[in-house]
């Protein structure tokens, strides 16, 4: 526990408290914070949309190559985020396999956009959601779903009325992990989406650049990011996770 908390204490001790309020009021700071919260939340929604069906598929349907798919899903966890960012560029960049086609057909270019930030964050954070939802699915009692089926419920109704409520705590826990990871994402974001204030400069990027010249500003930004995420996560936990 001390191992986890002491670095935070270090931040708090070194914080320039007298000028804290003034530094926080800078428009760039709030812009970066807003962008961080918005992109992390949208990335979490994307992960929920894509990740929950994927987790269901992995937990409930036997298909050839399932173990391989399961291993592949953990790739973003193992990959250094910067490498993930380069990989995204090679696929979705202007000269990437899909990116080239996207730009030629729809005129869409993802790098250096806010959508690119969401994409990079979702890429890195998705495994957290899939793994915890899959775990929750494995832990549920299959007989409940079978009972619903014998009563004439369709597969969709079973999924919606039986399976989803059963795994809801798992989904919430996964979404929280996913959101936290997306909020702290740095490497893939700066590589794929670049760094432009108000558009792609999230808090971790702002912290990194502030560190180059003004360590004090970096500490302030770090404390703000920590405080906001701890407050949000703490309130979520009380409401959703600990009281089922």
């Amino acid at each position: 526990m001390a191992f986890l908390v002491l670095p935070l204490a270090g931040l708090l001790i070194r914080a320039p408290w007298p000028t804290l309020a003034q530094r926080l009021a800078e428009p760039q700071v709030l812009e970066a914070l807003r962008l961080s919260l918005v992109t992390a939340t949208v990335a979490t929604l994307v992960c929920l949309l894509l990740g929950v069906p994927l987790a269901w598929l992995l937990a409930r349907v036997t298909f050839p190559g399932r173990r391989l798919v399961r291993a592949l899903i953990t790739v973003p966890l193992v990959l250094p985020p910067v490498v993930g960012g380069v990989a995204l560029l090679l696929v979705l960049g202007r000269r990437g396999l899909i990116g080239q086609w996207l730009e030629a057909t729809f005129g869409i270019s993802l790098p250096f956009t806010t959508a690119g930030v969401v994409l990079a964050e979702a890429f890195v954070a998705m495994p957290f959601l899939v793994i915890s939802v899959e775990g929750a699915l494995h832990a549920t009692d299959l007989r409940l779903e079978e009972a619903a089926a014998t009563l004439g419920a369709s597969r969709w109704v079973i999924f919606r009325r039986v399976t989803l409520p059963l795994v809801a705590p798992g989904i919430v826990a996964g979404a929280v992990l996913c959101w936290a990871r997306a909020l702290g994402e740095f490497g893939a974001t700066i590589t794929f989406a670049g760094n432009f204030p108000g558009r792609t400069q999230t808090m971790p990027l702002a912290v990194y650049l502030a560190l180059e010249t003004e360590p004090e500003a970096a500490i302030v930004l770090s404390i703000l990011l920590l405080a906001v995420s701890v407050i949000i996560l703490a309130s979520l936990r009380d409401r959703w996770v600990t009281s089922p």
Partner: peptide, 16 residues
């Protein structure tokens, strides 16, 4: 490690 606090900030934010 107070002097390391700054280095830790970079570590916290990811892949610095």
């Amino acid at each position: 490690g107070l002097p390391l606090a700054v280095a830790l900030t970079a570590g916290l934010t990811g892949c610095g």
